[in-house]
Simulated scan of single mutants.
Amino acid sequence: MASYLERDDRTLLVDGELDARPMGFGRGGKPPSYNIQIAVDADTGLIIHHAVTDEVNDLRMLHPMSKAVKELLDREHLTVVADTGYSNGNAAAACEADNITACVPVKRSVNNRGNGDEFERSDFVYSADDDSFRCPAGRVLARTQRVHPQSVFYVSRDCSGCALKSRCTTATRRSVTRHVHEDALDRMTARVANRPELMRLRRCSVEHPFGTMKRMMTGRFLTRGIAGTSTEMALSVLAFNMIRSINLVATPS
């Protein structure tokens, strides 16, 4: 057990279910579970692809699931719709590179600066021409050499004497960050904003199969281990698709 913890950098294991992981974060966190992924065809309601993973959330699943569906259908282009849990700049850029149009509401950080009335990141205007930001007072925040794997840092050249500084920062100079794939995130945000009906379509398409299979399975898997759970899930998907196919072609008596 100790070697298993060290190998996978874990702090918790379930005896007899070593592949499972605690899912989610915060108060909404779940006990050790599996992350079930499904891709549903919006026209027919059939499940095209599914996967059982030990990913603790959906952040890294948008691109691999979308790419698998695109290859399975042998399509030149694919449009996918997912909820905010899949919001990921790296995935958005990877989807664009593979000719996949991802429509996902982008998760933005909330304003937790001071009492909530200080300037947010969205109050700073980005200029692609010189790769810099302009603050609400019109001053420049230049790009620095400090680069996080997913973010680039920008710092004000001078905040002294600024009349708005009390609403901006208590530090000497204000800094903001920009995702390395911010452009892809902006395009994804625009797609969702321009077509709000997509999220309603997603709810109608994806939530129904999940709900039906949970009812069929009494809400819990009966097998253990990711291999056994994958087999059980495959059988459940097969049963759902058979029932769905019958309903699609059935005619009223």
Rank of each mutant, 00 (worst) to 15 (best):
N88L: 04
T53P: 02
P105T: 02
C95P: 03
A82Q: 12
R113C: 01
C103T: 02
L73R: 15
S87Q: 11
A97L: 13
N115E: 11
N57D: 14
D54C: 15
E120D: 05
I38K: 02
L62N: 12
A92D: 05
E120N: 07
E71I: 12
I48S: 08
V106L: 02
L62T: 13
I47G: 01
L73S: 12
Q37N: 03
H77G: 15
A51M: 04
G116T: 08
D58T: 12
D117S: 05
H50A: 07
I38C: 00
S122E: 02
H50C: 03
A102W: 03
I38M: 05
H49N: 08
F119I: 05
C103H: 01
A93R: 10
H50Q: 09
V69N: 13
V40I: 02
A42C: 03
V110K: 15
T84K: 15
D98M: 08
C95M: 04
D41K: 03
A39M: 02
R75Q: 12
D74Q: 14
D41E: 00
T101R: 15
D98E: 09
V106C: 06
E120M: 02
C103Y: 00
A94M: 08
D117I: 13
A102Y: 00
N90W: 12
N57Y: 07
A97Y: 08
V106Y: 01
M65F: 08
A68Q: 07
T44K: 00
P105I: 05
S66L: 12
D54R: 12
V56W: 11
V52H: 03
I48R: 13
H63E: 13
A51Y: 07
T101E: 14
H77V: 10
A39I: 00
I100T: 03
G114N: 09
D98T: 11
T53M: 06
N112T: 10
S122P: 05
E120C: 01
L73T: 10
A82H: 07
A68S: 09
A68P: 08
A68H: 06
F119R: 01
D74L: 11
G89Q: 02
A68G: 05
H49I: 00
P105Y: 08
A93C: 06
R75Y: 10
I47A: 03
A102D: 01
R75G: 04
H63V: 06
S87F: 04
V40Y: 00
E120P: 02
S109G: 11
V56T: 15
A42K: 02
G116I: 03
A102V: 06
K70I: 01
D98W: 11
H49E: 08
K107D: 03
I38F: 00
P64G: 14
T53E: 07
A82L: 11
S66K: 12
G45I: 06
E76I: 07
I48W: 07
N115R: 07
F124W: 01
A82F: 11
M61I: 09
A91H: 12
D54F: 08
H77P: 09
V81L: 06
L78I: 09
V104D: 09
T44I: 05
C103A: 03
V40R: 02
E120L: 01
I47D: 03
G114E: 07
D41A: 03
A91C: 10
V52D: 06
R121T: 01
F119A: 04
D54Q: 10
L59N: 13
D117M: 09
K70Q: 13
A97Q: 07
N57P: 09
V106H: 05
I100A: 06
E55T: 14
L59K: 14
M65H: 10
A94S: 07
K67Q: 06
